[in-house]
């Protein structure tokens, strides 16, 4: 079994702000991390590898420095990694990103049976690239999954987290599956793992290697356009009270507000 795990380098979202003067992103000095949900996808892949044998390849699309998270994936145990990097990929929305990642998965040898994603990335929060890749690959899609088990014949079971409960799902590979947090806790990369990945070259594929159509990549291939970005409206006019001295007054203030909102009579 060959498992591709798609990971994304994201800014630590807690620290991203808008420059109030220019209305542009201030990303300088913001630390980059591996998208937390993708860590669960990687862990899921490594567990399947440990239990039933598989080759695990980590993929990311991004600038050359995104290779850092591929090294980390390999240090944790991935067997190989590929960076998808090309100036032509810049400005891609989820459509164009899905196209490039699917092209790369089609190129991997042996044929990929299972593609794992985290349920969404914490910078864009769209949850659209996993489903998009499933569409380009024509692999069936399963979302919000955990506790994935794969049998020798390629049949799998998983639990999926729906809005009103959990569904136990049976399916058959190939598949694209996005995973949620409740899958196993991600392992740490042992020092020996880091040592082993040191020096090894991570291949970088661009438009040419992927035989991708330039017009479908990056901003050019993206149906959506960002018209503007701006800082979210600040909540103003909030009332502050000190409830330490007179808790009863605080309680009264809450009840008054609840009543104004029609929550209590």
């Amino acid at each position: 079994m060959h498992i591709a795990v798609c990971v994304k380098q994201v800014p630590d979202t807690a620290n991203v702000r808008i420059d109030p003067e220019t209305n542009t992103l201030m990303r300088e000095g913001v630390e980059s991390i591996i998208n937390p949900y993708d860590e669960y996808a990687l862990e899921q892949a490594l567990r399947l590898r440990d239990s039933c044998g598989a080759r695990v390849t980590a993929l990311t699309m991004g600038p050359p420095q995104a290779a850092v998270i591929l090294r980390e994936a390999m240090a944790r145990g991935a067997d190989g990694a590929v960076l998808l990097s090309d100036r032509a990929f810049a400005g891609a929305d989820t459509w164009a990103t899905s196209y490039v990642i699917a092209q790369a998965i089609k190129k991997l040898k042996p044929k990929v049976d299972l593609v794992l994603f985290g349920k969404q990335a914490i910078d864009g929060d769209t949850a659209q690239v996993g489903p998009g890749v499933s569409e380009f690959l024509k692999y069936p899609l399963l979302t919000y999954a955990r506790d994935l088990q794969v049998a020798a014949d390629g049949r799998y079971t998983a639990e999926t987290l729906m809005d009103d409960g959990v569904e136990v799902i049976e399916g058959e590979l190939p598949a694209v599956i996005t995973v949620v947090k409740e899958s196993a806790a991600p392992r740490f990369a042992p020092l020996a793992g880091w040592m082993a990945t040191r020096g090894g070259e991570i291949p970088s594929w661009g438009v040419k290697q992927l035989k991708a159509v330039p017009d479908l990549c990056g901003l050019q291939g993206s149906p959506t356009r960002v018209v503007k970005i701006f800082a979210p409206p600040v909540k103003s006019g909030g009332t502050r009270m000190d409830g330490r001295v007179q808790p009863a007054a605080a309680v009264e203030a809450i009840v008054t507000l609840l009543s104004r909102k029609g929550v209590v009579s």
Binding site: W95, P131, E135, P223
Partner: peptide
């Protein structure tokens, strides 16, 4: 933007070559 809407809409958008904005 439910568990259902978010997942299959993204597939439909790719198949239609349509633009999709989440949330």
């Amino acid at each position: 933007a439910t568990a259902i809407g978010r997942a299959f809409f993204a597939k439909v958008a790719v198949r239609c070559y349509a633009g999709l904005t989440a949330d």
